[in-house]
Every structure is written in structure tokens, then in C-alpha cells.
Write a protein that binds this DNA or RNA. Sequence first.
DNA 1: GCATCAAACAAAGA
DNA 2: CTCTTTGTTTGATG
Lengths: 274, 274
Amino acid sequence: MRKMPELPDIYILSKSMNDVLQSRMITGVKVNQEKCLNMTPVKFRNRVRNCKFESIHQRGKWVIAELDSKWSIASNLGMGGEIRLFHEGTKPNPKFHRVVIELDKGDWLGINHWWFGHVHLVPKGDFSSHSQLSKLGPEPLADDFTVDKLKAMLDKKRGRIKSYLLDQSFVAGIGNVYVQDILWYARIHPDRSVNALTPNDIEKLHWAIQQVLKEGIEYGGGLREQDIWGNEGTYIEHRQIGYRTGEPCPECSTIIEEIRVGQTTSYICPHCQV
Amino acid sequence: MRKMPELPDIYILSKSMNDVLQSRMITGVKVNQEKCLNMTPVKFRNRVRNCKFESIHQRGKWVIAELDSKWSIASNLGMGGEIRLFHEGTKPNPKFHRVVIELDKGDWLGINHWWFGHVHLVPKGDFSSHSQLSKLGPEPLADDFTVDKLKAMLDKKRGRIKSYLLDQSFVAGIGNVYVQDILWYARIHPDRSVNALTPNDIEKLHWAIQQVLKEGIEYGGGLREQDIWGNEGTYIEHRQIGYRTGEPCPECSTIIEEIRVGQTTSYICPHCQV
DNA sequence: GCATCAAACAAAGA
DNA sequence: CTCTTTGTTTGATG
């Protein structure tokens, strides 16, 4: 079961990259899958070679690595992707490492993704020209993501709440893994229409979003998601309800059900979540 | 129960207008509901006064009355509307006759509609500038509305068949009255997806569309729809299935059911229509 | 099903 | 939902 890394996973990855890569020099780039770039490999290589990494951070499900030039590398890992640091003596596998970024001292970064990953070059600090990044909604862990803001964002809207949480232009970084616990903590059924949420529901939801994402980060990310060294997070062991069909709800012991919501699977406690 | 006049009803009305109004002179216009026009009453009046009617015909659910100028009057009666000819000595009722067209010899046309009717002036023979008329689909009784054409129109489409029949941009003139018998004659359930129709289904459907609409015209229109003199049609007495909840299907005697299809009501024989 | 618009939803493609 | 595109459906409004 491969999942797409979500906000906490990308946060952990970005942090590990930030810790290790600052002021490391890019000495070369090998591209084994052209279409994951947003320009030709030659152009990409010319623009990043001999640049050094500056700060690296997470934005939604994207890793943003700023260079000491006018560019940032923006990478979206797609399904089951990863970015790993390797040392001199190991060799990349062309089938696996879609993009290889060679560093000084013989080290290299291997960027892998199973399907639909992106390694884009974007103007540093200006995402307006990038179709996906420019549309991202607010960061749910940022200071300005307040309850009032969430209320305003949901005002006059209609569709089901789960669609909004998964919509990257509504709020950035939540996917089908963390959304399960978010809705469970908020005691909201994924099918509930947004206009049927009370102010109290939205307050619980806001708390649950931040609670679950912070927990994900504390546990070092979930599932098989890894940092730059390949460490695994433990969120998956601590999750409350996602992918626990048939197990008892931690709150009320009702059996957890698996239902379809739109085109995604949801795991719910039919007693707690209404 | 007020219904909107549909193709056969508008055909009957247009024909009676064509028979009576040709070369009659418009001597004045009184407007009691400005918003049903597409220009100011003054402009409308100036453009039609002293013009004579030329031919008058039906297009979809619209009456198109050509004048001996560069304009046509295009009227859509909306819910339960009518156009009636009155003679000298009678007086229009301002609450009822939204637009009054005064004719020579003291006669006048009273255009009434309960809700959402239009009396527009459009360039004669050129509907391209009119948002509704320009989007109308083919006339279902025209020679070029062939089985092959209908097949092509439905090719690669997805939604339910009833939505298409009611969509004026797909085919013009069918509403929620005549569509009932059309689907019954074709033995097609209104909920059936278009991509589940066989070529044979489409052939039956094509035949049923023309059969039902022609029948409507032969009976002088349906329900309370009237010609310019106020005569009532008798289609409603001869209808097969529409608005006959609880009665037996004329074909197999199964009880006719009333179901919701989208936001409209459908009357079906659950045995005959699959 | 009355017509338009906007938002939400669904299927398919990359 | 991974994101886009395209097409269909639904809801609010006159």
C-alpha cells in the first residue's frame, strides 16, 4: 500500500534536508525521466549546477529547496516517492531514481517516485507562475490559519467537508491518510455538507486539523514515509482510525467501517461521526 | 397545474397567428412588465410601430413573428403563458397582459405569462446575437433530424437520457409533459444513461420523439394550451402515461409510477421502461 | 426542463 | 485529491 506523503511527512523530509544540505554544492544532474521536469534536462542542469542549497522547507505536499540563485527546486513526490541522500561509492539505479542531483564530495540525492512526481524549477520566493504552487491554499499549521479564517473559508460553501479538506487549493497538505483522523477527532462524518457544520463543528475541526498534523510531525511522519536518511516515522502505529476497518473505535468501541466518499475511501466510526 | 407550452403547443399557437396576423399592422405597444423585454419599452415600441406581420412560426418553445422590417418578435411564454387576439371593445388587464400589441381596426394581441416569459426583438433571420435562440438545438420535426443525426448527437455522451431530451440546446422544444410519452413509447427509463442506449434504442427514441410531437400537434396541443382564439387542445386526454400515477399502463396494465429524475418528476411504467 | 450562472461532482488521462 | 481537463449535475436566482 503506497500512499502519497502528506504535510507531516513532507515536513519531516524537508527538515532533514534543511539540516544536511545547507550550503552544499550541486555539481551535476542526471535525469532519467524527463517529463517530471518543467523544462529540458539541459536547461535544468545549467540552471542549478554550481549553485548551493539555502533553506529548505515544506509547502503543502511540496518540498521547496531554495538555491543561492534566483531559483528554487520544487519537488512533489507523487505516489510513494522519496528523496534520499547517498554517499560516494553507491550508484543510482536509473529505473528507480528519476532525478539524481550530484553534490560535492561525491554525495548525491536520489529522487524517486512511483507515479506522477514533479521536480520543478521555480523563481525563488515567487510561485505566481507555477500552476500548482500558485493555487495552494493556506498552510494549516501557520499562525494565520485561525478558527475565524476557517469559518470564513467555509462560509456559503456547499459540498461535502471531506472534499474541501482534500482540496489543495482550499487548504494545503492534507491527503487521504491524515484526513481520516482529522474527521474522527472532529467527530464529523466525511459526507457531511459544509453548510450543515455548526460554528462549534468548525472549531473542533480546526483543532483536529492542527492536532493530527502536529502529531504526525511528532511521530516523524507516517506509514513508510522517510526522511533523507531513510528513517521511518511511527505515526501509522499511533493513528486512531484510518485503515482500521473492523477494529473497535478507540473512543466508543463501535466497529470501524470503510465507506466510499466520492472516489476516495473513508474510515469512520459510525457512532462517533455524524 | 400550469405547464409551459412545448413544441406542439407553440406550433399550434404560431400557426393560428400565422393564419390571422399576416399583413396586419402594429399600431402601438403597451408594456406592463418591462423586464420581459430585451430593450426599453420606448425602443421596442419605436421599432415595431407601423410594421406589418409577415410569416409567424415556431422554433423550439419560441414563437417567432417576422415583421416587414429587419426585426422579428421572439416570444417565449414561460410558465402557463398565452397569446390571445382580442377585438375592439374589449380592454386589456394591466396585471394580466404583460405586453399588449395594438393592431389596426382596434384589435389587439394580449401576451400573458405567469412567470418568466420573454417578448424580445431580434434581427430577422439571424439569432446569433440572442443568447437563448442561438443555443437552441435542432428542431425534432425537421427533415434533417434523422436517426443518424440523433445517433451522432448522443455519441460519446454520458448523462441520463431524460436530461438530454429536456436540454433545449440538445434538441429544441421538448418539456416535461411530452417527454413522458416519448420515453414510454421508446420503452426507455428516464434514468438510463445515454451510453447504455443501443442503436435500436435510439431508433425507437427517434421514432417516439416524432410520433409524440406530431400527435400533440394533431390534437391541437395539450393541457390548457390554446391557440390565438383560446381553443383548447385535446392531447392531454390522449396522453399515454404522463401524470397518470396509479393508473394502469396502456400496454401491460402495470401500475404507473411517479419518480424523481434529477429535479423533475417522471411518470413511468416500471415494467415497460427499462 | 424555464434559462442562466456558478459550484460541485465524476470520469478519464497523464 | 495527485492534478488537470472535460463534461455532467446540482443549487440559487430572476
